[in-house]
Computed example of a mutant assay.
Amino acid sequence: MAIHVGRWDCTTCGYKGVLGPKTECPNCGADRPKNVKFYMAAEKDIVQDPEVIRRAKAGADWRCSFCGQNNPNDVQVCKDCGNPRSEADKQLAVKTYTTADVPRSGDGTKDFSKLKEKEAIATPPTSKKGCFIGLGIIVGIVGLLVLLALNKTVEVTVKGFEWEQSILVEEKRNVQEEDWSIPNGGKIISSFQAIHHYDQVLDHYETRTRTEQRAVGSEEYVCGQKDLGNGYFEDQYCTRTIYEDYQVEYEEPTYRDEPVYQTKYRYSIDRWFSISPIVTQDKNHSPTWGNAMHIRTSSSLREAGRTGTYTVIVQDEKNEEHIEEIPLSWWQQLEIGDNIKAKRGRITGGYRGLYKEEEQSN
């Protein structure tokens, strides 16, 4: 397993790429950071010297609990303060990374971005920022004024009414249809054989070739790195199976569509179809349904429902007229000359939410 020399960055002066085993910065002399992060700068930093390899495998460095200095694992007395090693002196962390996750750069240099963020908090906004803030306030005020205008209650006077009522009509007709069975009310005309569906039937086999794989051995490969906690990294190996491609002949079945016949019927049956409705309309307050007497006396016609629309014409304080569709129950209660409340709605350009004065008080 190959041993690589790691790197670390000085947090005191910002010097980058200090050799991992070094416990002091060559630029400013500061001790290796307390929470040092080792990283691999290049794959070529492979250790060849047997003595260095032995030192790398000796174990993680330990940190003196008295002065904070980092010391090699095989040193029993702190090289900085002379304190003997004790149980209070913790070893640096040993970590294992996958090849994709192994750190390739340090994060120990001074982080000036946080300082800038703090300064930005205390710095008054520039004129450009102030302009945007002021514009936002203006837009908010305008929006509020528009909302208040839309919800403003005004008084309008009923000037007239319009209505339209429709009776939906259906006509019974005798038609001919085809199906695999005769529905209730149908009268058979004829029957015949027809294709109902297709079955998949084996027709023949065709010889074809496909590519498959088979295991022919195994191999070891570098699948990660182990941070030894002393400035060195050690390759971690995994085993994987080696495969080779080979061609295989096989027989593939080919199918054909085989039609399946069943008896189909042609029959006559009465069906109801929508025809033109009976529509009545006027500009008064007395709606009437159209004459549907001929529907009730005919065996070939029937009512399929009734619909109606009811509108009121109102005049506002500017003598402008607006038309509003409202429910029949309310429409019937209104009279010409009634004064009612309304809310101006820009969606329709007219008035929405008409209501009587006495209903508002309730």
Results as ranks from 00 to 15, higher is better:
residue 326 I to P: 13
residue 66 F to T: 00
residue 123 T to N: 06
residue 80 D to A: 09
residue 131 C to A: 15
residue 279 V to D: 10
residue 219 E to L: 08
residue 92 L to V: 02
residue 182 I to P: 15
residue 330 W to E: 00
residue 252 E to S: 11
residue 316 D to T: 07
residue 8 W to S: 02
residue 293 M to R: 15
residue 190 S to T: 09
residue 111 D to T: 00
residue 118 K to R: 13
residue 112 F to Q: 02
residue 121 I to P: 09
residue 200 Q to S: 15
residue 356 K to S: 15
residue 337 G to A: 05
residue 256 R to T: 04
residue 337 G to S: 08
residue 289 W to Q: 10
residue 344 R to I: 01
residue 39 Y to M: 05
residue 314 V to R: 11
residue 294 H to G: 02
residue 164 E to C: 03
residue 131 C to Q: 14
residue 362 N to T: 06
residue 337 G to C: 09
residue 137 I to F: 15
residue 93 A to Q: 08
residue 16 K to F: 12
residue 322 H to V: 05
residue 114 K to Y: 05
residue 329 S to T: 09
residue 15 Y to L: 10
residue 87 E to N: 13
residue 313 I to E: 09
residue 112 F to R: 04
residue 98 T to K: 15
residue 4 H to Y: 09
residue 185 G to A: 07
residue 142 V to P: 14
residue 335 E to V: 06
residue 148 L to E: 08
residue 116 K to N: 06
residue 257 D to K: 11
residue 261 Y to I: 00
residue 25 C to D: 03
residue 133 I to A: 13
residue 125 P to G: 06
residue 67 C to W: 06
residue 40 M to Y: 12
residue 202 L to H: 04
residue 300 S to T: 13
residue 327 P to W: 01
residue 277 P to R: 01
residue 58 A to H: 02
residue 23 T to C: 15
residue 291 N to Y: 10
residue 33 P to N: 02
residue 31 D to G: 11
residue 319 N to C: 08
residue 148 L to N: 06
residue 55 R to A: 15
residue 34 K to T: 08
residue 169 V to A: 12
residue 228 L to W: 08
residue 221 Y to W: 05
residue 279 V to E: 05
residue 167 I to E: 03
residue 60 A to V: 00
residue 111 D to L: 06
residue 250 Y to E: 00
residue 142 V to G: 13
residue 331 W to I: 00
residue 24 E to A: 13
residue 82 G to Q: 03
